Amino acid sequence: MACSPVTIFDDLADRVEYGRHDDPTSALDSVLASLTHLASASRDRGLDSSALDELLRWVRDAAQTGYGKDEISRIVDTMWRPQPDHAEPAMGTLPR
């Protein structure tokens, strides 16, 4: 039975909200390998990989932080970069 995108994003949101990152079927180490290959293949074919590259950066940051065995929802903990008070919010930061 296929899941709808709404169901998938609802589940992901619940996992982030409640700090549940223990689904072994989507470990960041595995996602990192898949995204690395997908982004590389996209670039090799002349496709714009900028969205994949950004997701790949977030996944890599989380894996390098020690979350490699956790699921993809863990990237939320590493994707927001605080900025100094005088700086404009950078991509990947929550507005104040």
Rank of each mutant, 00 (worst) to 15 (best):
V6H: 12
S30V: 11
L56P: 02
T78G: 02
M79F: 08
L12M: 12
L47Q: 09
H37C: 06
R57V: 03
L28N: 06
S50R: 12
F9Y: 11
S49R: 02
A51C: 01
E88T: 08
E71T: 02
D48H: 05
E88Y: 04
D61N: 14
A62Y: 05
E88F: 06
I75D: 02
E71N: 13
L35Q: 03
I8S: 09
R96A: 15
D44E: 14
R45N: 13
A13I: 11
G92S: 07
T36S: 15
Q64K: 10
T93A: 14
P82T: 09
A62E: 11
E71F: 00
W80A: 10
A2G: 03
V16E: 10
V31S: 01
G92N: 06
G66M: 06
H37E: 14
L35V: 03
D22E: 15
Y67S: 07
S73L: 01
D10G: 07
E17N: 15
D61L: 12
T78K: 05
D53L: 04
L32M: 04
D85A: 15
W80S: 08
S73P: 01
P82Q: 08
F9A: 12
M79Y: 02
T25Q: 14
A2D: 13
D53W: 02
G66L: 05
R60Y: 02
A39S: 14
L35Y: 04
L28G: 02
D11P: 00
Q64T: 11
D85F: 05
S50V: 05
S73H: 00
D22I: 13
H37L: 12
V59A: 03
R45T: 04
L52E: 01
L28H: 07
E71G: 07
V76P: 00
Q83H: 03
S4Y: 13
M79P: 03
I75L: 04
L55M: 11
M1W: 10
H86A: 08
V16H: 08
L94H: 11
V16A: 13
A90T: 08
R74Y: 06
A27C: 05
P84C: 02
G66F: 07
D48Q: 05
Q64S: 13
G92E: 04
G19N: 13
Y67T: 00
V76W: 09
L28W: 06
P84R: 08
E17P: 01
G46K: 01
D44F: 04
D14Q: 11
G66W: 04
G68L: 04
T36P: 00
D77R: 08
D11N: 10
T93Q: 11
Y67F: 12
R43N: 07
H21P: 10
Q83K: 05
A13T: 14
S42F: 03
D14Y: 08
V16N: 08
A33C: 02
W80H: 12
D85K: 11
G46Q: 03
C3L: 15
V59S: 06
M1T: 14
E17F: 11
L32C: 02
V6M: 12
T36D: 09
D61W: 06
R60S: 13
D77M: 07
S50W: 06
P82H: 05
P24F: 13
W58L: 09
P95E: 11
P84A: 11
L52R: 01
W58S: 12
S30Q: 07
V16Y: 09
T7W: 11
A2R: 15
T65S: 13
C3H: 15
